[in-house]
């Protein structure tokens, strides 16, 4: 199992034989501030790597969520509906969606590279 990052600040857990698990990085949640709502995709939606699959709202801003993988949404984290603040308090353990499909890993960064980038921000 490994966690990869998109340069748009989403992470994905890639594990052989399992669905992809997608969330946002600690840097993303800090940049967004208090998250008040997550516009998650619906079950069965098709997502494409590099394209928007929803958005997150703070009080005065909204940011697109860019999918780090391609495929079909097989699970959506319903807990976020009533507790979007989980993305602020524990971003790496709070997933947004699970996707069955494929990933072009060449377009993603490994954890170390991403975190190094993060320091530059």
């Amino acid at each position: 199992m490994k966690r990869l990052y998109a340069n748009t600040h989403e992470w994905v857990i890639v594990e052989e034989g399992k669905d992809f698990v997608v969330g946002i990085s600690d840097y993303a949640q800090i940049a967004l501030g208090d998250i008040v709502f997550v516009n998650s995709p619906s079950l069965g939606d098709k997502v494409t790597q590099g394209e928007s699959f929803g958005d997150v709202e703070s009080v005065k801003a909204v940011s697109d969520l860019i999918s780090p993988v391609s495929g079909k949404v097989v699970a959506v984290n319903d807990a976020l509906l009533n507790a979007p603040e989980l993305l602020n308090s524990d971003p790496l353990n709070t997933w947004i969606m699970k996707v069955s499909g494929s990933v072009n890993e060449a377009e993603l960064l490994d954890e170390a590279t991403y975190l190094a980038l993060d320091k530059d921000h």
Binding site: D34, V36, F37, E57, V59, N82, P84, E85
Partner: peptide, 8 residues
């Protein structure tokens, strides 16, 4: 607290 207002 406008965060509270928007979250809940």
């Amino acid at each position: 607290d406008d965060v509270l207002a928007a979250r809940h």
